[in-house]
């Protein structure tokens, strides 16, 4: 983990309430896709955890949705301003698992970390198929970024205003794609459904309210088959370890 000031070099609106924030600074503590940062926002006591959507040698790209007061305040941060981040938190996705055709399934603001994941999977000679799920056409973001990687990208909308009407499962059914593994991040209901429906193994990214983000407070614990884990240090869990209550 590193703590430091990061310079905002880009801050743009992607949809009605989803923003992309690109910052510049030390990225040496980021080891894998699926890790997150914890952002200090002026006047708010706790930091806000946001997944790393993409990164390189000196930039980090974050995509966040405005859901409450903290994320709302963040939208007013201008390019050129510095923000205090804890960087390189969480365990991240393991892309060395034995598989050839993994499904990468994201829902809503669970989608951002899957961008860098998909890039990593491609580098490791795997052939991912990406399924990104939204409620409606106007909410779609990152589609072009995924598309430009040259992988198959399926979009679903609950109301059918774009792509496949329905959920991730409808996209699998309609396209008849073959897969031997999965990676997923998104709303709890989707994660539960994927875990109970898909017959292959996979990795699931979890969310919880956090006090610290680095293992210090025990605020984020959840039960797994191999005992208690902290979501902040074990954000991503193998499907065979997962316990839903």
């Amino acid at each position: 983990m590193t703590k430091g000031l990061y310079l905002i070099i880009r801050h743009e609106r992607l949809t009605d309430n989803v923003y992309r924030l690109v910052v510049e600074g030390d990225t040496s503590s980021i080891l894998r896709s699926g890790q997150f940062v914890n952002i200090e926002i002026e006047r708010f006591y706790l930091r806000r955890p946001i997944s790393i959507s993409d990164y390189d040698g000196n930039t980090i790209s974050l995509i966040y949705k405005v859901v409450g007061e903290g994320t709302e305040a963040l939208t007013h941060y201008k390019e050129g301003r510095e923000i205090d981040l804890l960087v390189g938190l969480g365990n991240g996705f393991d892309t060395d698992t034995v598989c050839h055709k993994p499904l990468v399934i994201g829902g809503g603001v669970g989608i951002p970390p899957l961008l860098k994941l998909t890039k990593e999977l491609i580098t490791k000679d795997k052939q991912p198929t990406v399924i990104i799920c939204f409620n409606t056409k106007d909410e779609i973001f990152l589609y072009n970024e995924f598309k430009s990687l040259g992988v198959d990208v399926l979009v679903t909308t609950v109301d059918g205003s774009y792509g496949v009407k329905g959920f991730y499962s409808d996209a699998i059914k309609e396209s008849g794609i073959k897969y031997d593994y999965y990676y997923t991040c998104g709303p709890l209901a989707m994660l539960k459904d994927i875990h109970s429906t898909l017959s292959v193994q996979g990795q699931i990214s979890f969310e919880e309210r956090m006090g610290c983000g680095f293992g210090g407070c025990m605020g984020c614990s959840h039960k797994t088959k191999s005992g208690y884990k902290r979501v902040c240090t074990d954000t991503i869990i193998n499907s065979d370890e997962v316990l839903f209550d």
Binding site: L46, R209, H222
Partner: peptide, 17 residues
């Protein structure tokens, strides 16, 4: 194991656990 989650909440200039 402790209590079920959410276990953490924020408030002005502080937090609840």
């Amino acid at each position: 194991f402790g209590n079920p989650t959410p276990r953490i909440a924020e408030c002005k200039a502080g937090m609840l656990n």
